[in-house]
């Protein structure tokens, strides 16, 4: 069985659980529990361990999706997840600038742990208070427009939108793989 593993991460309330539930063909393994701390102001339940979803698209081929816990104190889980992942999606709520700090911290963690392809999904981009994409990228620390991961608006409740985001990530992965292959070929020629 060939399996590709993708991690879906982001601050509390960015839509990670919804993203996985929307595209998963199985009932997503849901570890949401009643939120008891500051998260409770944002949502009544939060993911305490991780979400899991699966997409089998042929015989012996499947995509596995893993959602990180929402609360940062569970970040030991991110380490396990990211070390085994092929790529990851960072979901960020466009209308919650208070989350950009946390998103940036998660991003730094992920990039430090593994050099794997990524995609930034901006949720709630149609909210009147949403920041423009360019500004969010800057707030996340991407100063140059030429050196940024692919970024797409995402509605985590719509299959089309989630499929579109995943397709963009898979394309990024394929590009990375091709670039690595070219580099190896070049090295071999030298």
């Amino acid at each position: 069985m060939e399996i590709m593993r993708i991690v879906v991460t982001g601050p509390v309330g960015a839509g990670k659980s919804s993203f996985i539930r929307t595209i998963s063909e199985i009932e997503a393994v849901d570890t949401d529990r009643k939120a008891t701390d500051e998260t409770a102001a944002l949502k009544t339940k939060t993911t305490v361990a991780m979400d899991f979803g699966r997409l089998q698209f042929g015989q012996n081929v499947a995509l596995h999706l893993y959602g990180t816990p929402g609360q940062e104190r569970f970040d030991f889980m991110w380490d396990i997840l990211i070390r085994k992942a092929h790529a990851f999606v960072l979901l960020v709520s466009s209308h919650r600038p208070q989350d950009f700090r946390s998103a940036r911290r998660i991003l730094a963690f992920m990039r430090h742990r593994a050099k794997i392809p990524m995609l930034i999904g901006l949720s709630h981009a149609d909210n009147p208070a949403a920041w423009p994409m360019e500004e969010i990228m800057l707030a996340l620390g991407y100063l140059s427009p030429h050196n940024r991961p692919p970024t797409v608006p995402v509605n985590a409740l719509e299959t089309t939108s989630v499929a579109n985001a995943l397709a963009a990530l898979i394309e990024a992965y394929a590009r990375d793989q091709m670039a690595e292959l070219n580099r190896l070929n070049k090295d071999a020629l030298i």
Binding site: V29, T31, V48, A49, M50, F52, E72, R73, F74, D75, F76, M77, W78, D79, R104, R105, I106, A108, F109, H112
Partner: peptide, 16 residues
């Protein structure tokens, strides 16, 4: 800032 690994015990459910 790069988030560090906290020393909290994992809360992994059996079915994961």
């Amino acid at each position: 800032e790069v988030a560090g690994i906290t020393a909290v015990e994992p809360l992994i459910a059996n079915h994961e």
